[in-house]
Protein backbone atom coordinates (compact mmCIF):
# COMPACT_ATOMS: atom_id res chain seq x y z
CA UNK A 1 0.00 0.00 0.00
CA UNK A 2 1.39 3.37 -1.01
CA UNK A 3 0.51 5.35 2.10
CA UNK A 4 1.17 8.77 0.60
CA UNK A 5 -1.06 8.05 -2.39
CA UNK A 6 -3.85 6.63 -0.20
CA UNK A 7 -3.81 9.59 2.20
CA UNK A 8 -3.78 12.10 -0.65
CA UNK A 9 -6.79 10.33 -2.18
CA UNK A 10 -8.66 10.39 1.14
CA UNK A 11 -7.93 14.09 1.64
CA UNK A 12 -9.17 14.80 -1.87
CA UNK A 13 -12.49 13.16 -1.08
CA UNK A 14 -12.15 9.44 -1.85
CA UNK A 15 -12.99 8.33 1.71
CA UNK A 16 -13.46 4.68 0.66
CA UNK A 17 -9.66 4.42 0.41
CA UNK A 18 -9.53 4.75 4.21
CA UNK A 19 -10.62 1.12 4.37
CA UNK A 20 -7.15 0.14 3.12
CA UNK A 21 -5.55 1.79 6.13
CA UNK A 22 -8.04 0.21 8.52
CA UNK A 23 -7.44 -3.29 7.11
CA UNK A 24 -3.66 -2.82 7.11
CA UNK A 25 -3.34 -1.66 10.72
CA UNK A 26 -6.38 -3.13 12.45
CA UNK A 27 -4.74 -6.19 14.01
CA UNK A 28 -1.68 -4.21 15.08
CA UNK A 29 -3.79 -1.55 16.77
CA UNK A 30 -5.99 -4.18 18.44
CA UNK A 31 -2.99 -5.95 19.93
CA UNK A 32 -1.45 -2.71 21.06
CA UNK A 33 -4.71 -1.64 22.73
CA UNK A 34 -5.00 -5.05 24.36
CA UNK A 35 -1.52 -4.86 25.82
CA UNK A 36 -1.85 -1.25 26.92
CA UNK A 37 -5.27 -1.33 28.51
CA UNK A 38 -5.32 -4.77 30.08
CA UNK A 39 -8.88 -5.93 30.54
CA UNK A 40 -10.33 -2.73 31.93
CA UNK A 41 -11.72 -1.62 28.60
CA UNK A 42 -13.37 -3.07 25.52
CA UNK A 43 -10.60 -3.56 22.96
CA UNK A 44 -12.99 -3.43 20.02
CA UNK A 45 -14.35 -0.07 21.17
CA UNK A 46 -10.81 1.24 21.64
CA UNK A 47 -9.73 0.10 18.19
CA UNK A 48 -12.71 1.85 16.65
CA UNK A 49 -11.91 5.05 18.53
CA UNK A 50 -8.31 4.93 17.36
CA UNK A 51 -9.29 4.72 13.69
CA UNK A 52 -11.85 7.48 14.04
CA UNK A 53 -9.27 9.70 15.76
CA UNK A 54 -6.77 8.83 13.02
CA UNK A 55 -9.26 9.79 10.30
CA UNK A 56 -9.90 13.16 11.95
CA UNK A 57 -6.17 13.74 12.41
CA UNK A 58 -5.23 12.90 8.79
CA UNK A 59 -5.27 16.52 7.56
CA UNK A 60 -2.58 17.30 10.17
CA UNK A 61 -0.32 14.44 9.08
CA UNK A 62 2.58 15.94 7.14
CA UNK A 63 4.64 12.78 6.50
CA UNK A 64 7.34 13.98 8.85
CA UNK A 65 7.21 10.53 10.46
CA UNK A 66 5.98 7.17 9.24
CA UNK A 67 2.22 6.61 9.21
CA UNK A 68 2.69 3.66 11.57
CA UNK A 69 4.41 5.92 14.14
CA UNK A 70 1.53 8.37 13.87
CA UNK A 71 -0.99 5.57 14.38
CA UNK A 72 0.82 4.19 17.42
CA UNK A 73 0.97 7.65 18.94
CA UNK A 74 -2.78 8.09 18.49
CA UNK A 75 -3.38 4.63 19.95
CA UNK A 76 -1.38 5.45 23.07
CA UNK A 77 -3.26 8.71 23.57
CA UNK A 78 -6.71 7.19 22.99
CA UNK A 79 -6.06 4.33 25.42
CA UNK A 80 -4.65 6.72 28.03
CA UNK A 81 -7.69 9.00 27.73
CA UNK A 82 -10.06 6.07 28.19
CA UNK A 83 -8.11 4.66 31.11
CA UNK A 84 -8.41 7.97 32.91
CA UNK A 85 -12.19 7.67 32.68
CA UNK A 86 -12.08 4.13 34.01
CA UNK A 87 -9.87 4.34 37.06
CA UNK A 88 -11.18 1.18 38.73
CA UNK A 89 -8.37 -1.20 39.73
CA UNK A 90 -8.49 -4.61 38.12
CA UNK A 91 -8.03 -7.59 40.36
CA UNK A 92 -6.36 -10.81 39.26
CA UNK A 93 -9.75 -12.55 39.46
CA UNK A 94 -11.22 -10.12 36.89
CA UNK A 95 -8.46 -11.00 34.45
CA UNK A 96 -9.03 -14.74 34.87
CA UNK A 97 -12.66 -14.31 33.87
CA UNK A 98 -11.79 -12.41 30.68
CA UNK A 99 -9.10 -14.49 28.96
CA UNK A 100 -9.57 -17.77 27.10
CA UNK A 101 -6.73 -20.12 26.15
CA UNK A 102 -6.15 -21.50 22.66
CA UNK A 103 -8.55 -24.29 21.70
CA UNK A 104 -5.64 -26.46 20.48
CA UNK A 105 -4.33 -27.20 23.97
CA UNK A 106 -5.35 -30.14 26.15
CA UNK A 107 -6.92 -29.61 29.57
CA UNK A 108 -3.70 -29.41 31.59
CA UNK A 109 -2.00 -27.20 29.05
CA UNK A 110 -5.12 -25.07 29.02
CA UNK A 111 -4.87 -24.44 32.71
CA UNK A 112 -1.16 -23.68 32.63
CA UNK A 113 -1.48 -21.48 29.58
CA UNK A 114 -4.43 -19.64 31.08
CA UNK A 115 -2.52 -19.11 34.29
CA UNK A 116 0.53 -17.67 32.60
CA UNK A 117 -1.33 -15.41 30.21
CA UNK A 118 -3.63 -14.12 32.90
CA UNK A 119 -0.76 -13.43 35.26
CA UNK A 120 1.21 -11.58 32.62
CA UNK A 121 -1.72 -9.58 31.38
CA UNK A 122 -2.68 -8.54 34.87
CA UNK A 123 0.91 -7.64 35.75
CA UNK A 124 1.31 -5.42 32.66
CA UNK A 125 -1.94 -3.70 33.58
CA UNK A 126 -0.55 -2.81 37.02
CA UNK A 127 2.42 -0.89 35.65
CA UNK A 128 2.31 2.88 35.40
CA UNK A 129 1.05 3.89 31.99
CA UNK A 130 4.37 5.35 30.79
CA UNK A 131 6.31 2.26 31.83
CA UNK A 132 3.69 0.01 30.31
CA UNK A 133 3.74 1.94 27.03
CA UNK A 134 7.53 1.86 26.78
CA UNK A 135 7.67 -1.86 27.58
CA UNK A 136 4.91 -2.83 25.16
CA UNK A 137 6.36 -0.74 22.33
CA UNK A 138 9.83 -2.11 22.99
CA UNK A 139 8.69 -5.67 22.21
CA UNK A 140 6.38 -4.52 19.48
CA UNK A 141 7.46 -5.18 15.89
CA UNK A 142 11.13 -5.23 16.92
CA UNK A 143 11.14 -1.54 17.75
CA UNK A 144 14.46 -0.05 18.76
CA UNK A 145 14.64 2.24 21.77
CA UNK A 146 14.88 5.17 19.34
CA UNK A 147 11.64 4.05 17.61
CA UNK A 148 9.96 3.93 21.02
CA UNK A 149 11.27 7.43 21.80
CA UNK A 150 9.86 8.69 18.46
CA UNK A 151 6.42 7.27 19.20
CA UNK A 152 6.35 8.49 22.81
CA UNK A 153 7.96 11.81 21.80
CA UNK A 154 10.49 11.69 24.60
CA UNK A 155 14.24 11.24 24.94
CA UNK A 156 16.14 7.99 24.49
CA UNK A 157 17.38 8.20 28.08
CA UNK A 158 13.85 8.40 29.38
CA UNK A 159 12.83 5.35 27.34
CA UNK A 160 15.77 3.34 28.71
CA UNK A 161 14.84 4.34 32.24
CA UNK A 162 11.16 3.51 31.73
CA UNK A 163 11.92 0.08 30.28
CA UNK A 164 14.38 -0.72 33.07
CA UNK A 165 11.82 0.15 35.73
CA UNK A 166 9.02 -1.60 33.85
CA UNK A 167 10.97 -4.87 33.64
CA UNK A 168 11.86 -4.67 37.32
CA UNK A 169 8.28 -3.96 38.39
CA UNK A 170 6.91 -6.61 36.06
CA UNK A 171 9.12 -9.28 37.61
CA UNK A 172 7.93 -8.30 41.08
CA UNK A 173 4.31 -8.35 39.95
CA UNK A 174 4.68 -11.71 38.22
CA UNK A 175 6.04 -13.20 41.44
CA UNK A 176 3.18 -11.61 43.34
CA UNK A 177 0.72 -13.11 40.89
CA UNK A 178 1.91 -16.63 41.61
CA UNK A 179 1.06 -16.38 45.30
Amino acid sequence: MNEFEVIQAILKGDVNRYEEIVREYQSVVTNLCYKLCGTKLDVEELTQQVFIALYEALPRFKFQSKLSTFIYRITINVVYRQLRHHKKMVSYADVVKENDASPDLNAEQHIEHDEQINRLHWAIGQLKYEQRTALVLCVFKDFSYQDVADVMQCSLTKVESLIFRAKKNLKVLMDYGTK
Binding site: N16, Y18, E19, V22, R23, Q26, S27, T30, N31, C33, Y34, K35, V43, E44, T47, Q48, F51, I52, Y55, N99, D100, I117, L120, H121, I124
Partner: peptide, 14 residues
Protein backbone atom coordinates in the same frame (compact mmCIF):
# COMPACT_ATOMS: atom_id res chain seq x y z
CA UNK B 1 0.70 -11.74 24.31
CA UNK B 2 -2.08 -11.39 21.76
CA UNK B 3 -5.65 -10.23 21.99
CA UNK B 4 -7.80 -13.38 22.31
CA UNK B 5 -10.80 -11.80 20.58
CA UNK B 6 -11.06 -11.46 16.82
CA UNK B 7 -11.78 -7.80 16.23
CA UNK B 8 -13.06 -6.29 12.98
CA UNK B 9 -14.07 -2.65 13.15
CA UNK B 10 -13.87 -1.94 9.40
CA UNK B 11 -17.59 -1.67 8.84
CA UNK B 12 -18.32 0.60 11.81
CA UNK B 13 -15.33 2.85 11.06
CA UNK B 14 -16.23 3.17 7.37
Amino acid sequence: LQCPKLVDVTQSVM
